[in-house]
């Protein structure tokens, strides 16, 4: 009863905080912080996309960075060079990403476990090398200019647009996870052979999950491109695949909130370490970041959100047991 009431309440509170964020000047929210938050939310969308294929379907795709870059470049090229309308270019960019995801998924999803991770990683390196060397496509070192439509010129407008996209993606994920498709995907995650045996077409479902995940990460890439106003080939780097993976696992895989918490939290943390201004920290911040990764993965293997949930359940059962125990005695 209590839980039913508190959960939506918590979500509404967080949403309210996110909406109010750009106006919180009195606690020191400035232009720069709004920008960081906008970028962090775009990364959160990317993390959610990986959560679908990794967290719920159990297939560790290490090509999310490549697909994010493909989405970003598709949008940039469609909007700038082809001069397409924003509302046409954005969905088209996501669709192109999803289509390339389909082409990649067809051969690579035949492999399982670590093989799949390596195959997708290899695809990412190929995409990176192609964007690095094919300057017509990527614009070389100057990169590709990304136009901002008139209604997104304002910083706060971009903030709310990305926030809206994040909420939309979260809602879509919620419905996927609660639907029959979500259950099917999770059954593939827990035991692929068994799922196959009870008549689930595992390959088709994995492919569907992969393609949807590519669509979403294409959106994340486009949003990043819009916020930055320009792009270069480094956005396709496999390092970003690693970072997205880190956001998901540190936040908590297979939870809806985990990837969002992981992405926004870690993005802030890294930026904070950059800003602290102590010379040593600026140079060595990835040293601390690496250490945090190792410690979290050892001591909180289910991520921050998963760990908190586990602790909450543990506390609740312990509390209840005591209570019922007293009654019984």
């Amino acid at each position: 009863m209590m839980k039913k009431f508190t959960k939506p309440g918590l979500y509404l509170l967080l949403l309210g905080l996110a909406v109010a964020f750009p106006w919180l000047k009195f606690i020191g929210v400035d232009k720069y912080q709004i920008r960081i938050m906008t970028l962090a939310m775009a990364w959160a969308i990317a993390a959610l996309s990986l959560n679908l294929i990794l967290g719920y379907t159990g297939q560790a795709s290490l090509a999310q960075g490549a697909f994010m870059g493909i989405g970003a470049y598709s949008f940039g090229i469609l909007a700038q060079r082809a001069g397409l309308n924003f509302w046409l270019a954005l969905p088209l960019a996501c669709l192109i990403t999803a289509f390339i995801g389909l082409l990649v998924g067809l051969p690579s999803l035949r492999t399982k476990g670590p093989y799949f991770a390596i195959v997708t990683l290899c695809f990412n390196v190929i995409v990176f090398k192609v964007f690095e060397n094919w300057t017509w496509l990527s614009g070389g070192i100057q990169g590709q200019v990304v136009p901002q439509p008139a209604f997104l010129v304002q910083r706060w407008a971009r903030y709310y647009f990305v926030l809206g996209c994040l909420v939309l993606v979260l809602v879509v994920m919620h419905f996927i996870v609660k639907s029959l498709l979500g259950v099917t995907l999770m059954s593939i995650r827990s035991n692929e052979n068994l799922a196959e045996a009870v008549g689930i077409n595992t390959f088709r479902n994995k492919l569907l999950s992969f393609v949807v995940s590519c669509f979403i990460v294409g959106l994340a890439g486009s949003l990043l491109a819009i916020e930055n106003g320009q792009l270069d080939f480094t956005i396709t780097s496999y390092l970003y695949s690693f970072y997205i993976l880190i956001y998901v696992l540190i936040g908590g895989a297979a939870t809806l909130a985990g990837p969002v918490v992981g992405a926004i939290g870690l993005y802030w943390l890294l930026d904070y370490m950059k800003k602290v201004g102590i010379k040593g920290v600026e140079e060595f911040r990835y040293l601390i970041f690496g250490l945090i990764l190792i410690l979290v993965v050892i001591y909180l293997p289910r991520g921050v959100v998963g760990g908190t949930k586990q602790f909450w359940e543990w506390a609740k059962t312990r509390f209840k047991k005591k209570k019922t125990g007293e009654v019984l005695e």
């Binding site: 690693f242 993976l245 696992l249 540190i250 140079e283 911040r285 990835y286 990764l293 190792i294 993965v297």
Partner: peptide
């Protein structure tokens, strides 16, 4: 060793942590 018995992807994350540490240390 503390990660033995956990999903393989966890060792992957730990390895990335180690990579970041070693590379930053040397570059610094």
């Amino acid at each position: 060793r503390p990660l033995r018995g956990t999903p393989q992807i966890n060792t992957f994350i730990a390895a990335i942590g180690l990579i970041l540490m070693l590379e930053t240390l040397v570059r610094g």
